[in-house]
Design a binder for these strands. Structure first.
Lengths: 217, 217
DNA sequence: GCCCACAAGTTTCCCTTGTCAACATTCTTT
DNA sequence: AAAGAATGTTGACAAGGGAAACTTGTGGGC
């Protein structure tokens, strides 16, 4: 259908633009790529994109939506298939979250940026909530199993999300280096988060044998 | 000295630019203000800023540095003067952190942005660490008093910082609405964080009488 | 089959912005 | 007081986002 290199109509420019943009996203800081360069790479004139998106913010919003979708997918995929211990599931999902952010740093930042929101606030909130639901479900199950403290689920989800969000962004920014914040800051933080969420937070220091990370200087 | 409205030399243009920029920062999404507009407001030609900053990123970096300084000041000021219970100090400081971010959202985001870092990476990291030190001190004291679990302080600080950072950004983005994440998401998250940090995390649900927030549907 | 409206691209044009270079005006220093 | 360094100003430029007007396929009704 589109094997012929020179056709007036591209065929599926919208998709092509989004794909190309996703590719360019990680090449430059902060989605600073230009619409013109994008068009250049897609092999179309620099205003062609306007037939598919109202403006640059519109394109960015589209990417952001896609980002939330992917995040949700990644989180769902991170749950071990034969359900194991909830603790492991929680950790697996959390690590997947942070890794997603680290691997798609600009996309992740874009997802929460004003630029994207400007053009699709409501939808972004919805998709964000959809991604968050994966976490909520996990917490919900954890509570039902008596593993997590019986507290308002949304509050626990909020705390978890905040922790993951912060962890992800600090990781992206390279601010969680061993000098600043100790080794394995991510796992350590997750451990601390868990201890705040769990029902049976054991005695004093470094209780459970299955601690994510046990390191005392 | 600068009462005369029309002087060739401004007197302290550098300061004036920074002040004006700080003012403009919150007027528009994501430090999108323009150098030219800034110059305009400062009553100066559109290239005058280049005598004081290498480029726009340089100016932004300066603002970011200032932001970290202010954050540190705010955090220090938030500690109750006659030291009260460490728990209260911790909460006071945390709330001050989030409030700082919410009240200076664009500045806060700028502080962690690639645009700012581009021009002063090392310094930014240092000032960030300086601000973080306030938190570290508090944790350190809390540990010494046996109030906090004896764990690697940097790890605890990392967890705390991540939580605060995430909380702040989600708050800024308006994603912590009651519908998504329950009421008083900030306080609830802080409570959960504390329970993860504390040494004596009481039995099951909602133990301590001094709980920040006790709400079960 | 023919025609026309519409969708999808293209060319041109305009305005704003960041930044550079050359020139002007003060301030400082000796 | 005169040189020289600061600090400002004017003018020019390229690049980017976006609007308008024009062109070329496409697809449905007759």
């Amino acid at each position: 259908m589109n094997d012929n290199p020179k056709r007036y109509h591209h065929g599926d420019l919208r998709r092509a633009l989004i794909d190309t943009a996703l590719g360019m996203l990680e090449e430059t800081d902060d989605w600073r790529f230009t619409l013109r360069e994008l068009a250049r790479r897609a092999g179309v004139s620099h205003t062609a994109a306007y037939k598919h998106f109202p403006d640059k913010a519109g394109l960015l919003a589209e990417l952001a939506l896609l980002g939330f979708e992917r995040l949700r997918t990644v989180l769902l995929a991170a749950r071990p298939r034969p359900p194991v211990r909830p603790r492991e599931e929680f950790l697996a999902m959390s690590r997947a979250y942070v890794r997603f952010g680290a691997d798609n740093s600009n996309l992740y930042r874009l997802m929460f940026s004003a630029d994207a929101r400007q053009s699709a606030h409501a939808q972004l909130k919805d998709r964000g909530a959809a991604a968050l639901d994966v976490l909520v479900d996990l917490i919900s199950a954890g509570q039902a199993a008596g593993w997590l403290r019986a507290r308002d689920i949304r509050q626990q989800a909020g705390a978890g999300w905040s922790q993951l969000h912060g962890l992800t962004l600090l990781t992206i920014d390279g601010l969680l280096g061993p000098d600043t914040v100790g080794t394995d800051a991510v796992d350590a933080s997750l451990e601390i988060l868990l201890e705040g969420l769990q029902a049976d937070s054991g005695g004093t220091a470094g209780g459970s044998a299955s601690s994510v990370r046990e390191r005392q200087p």
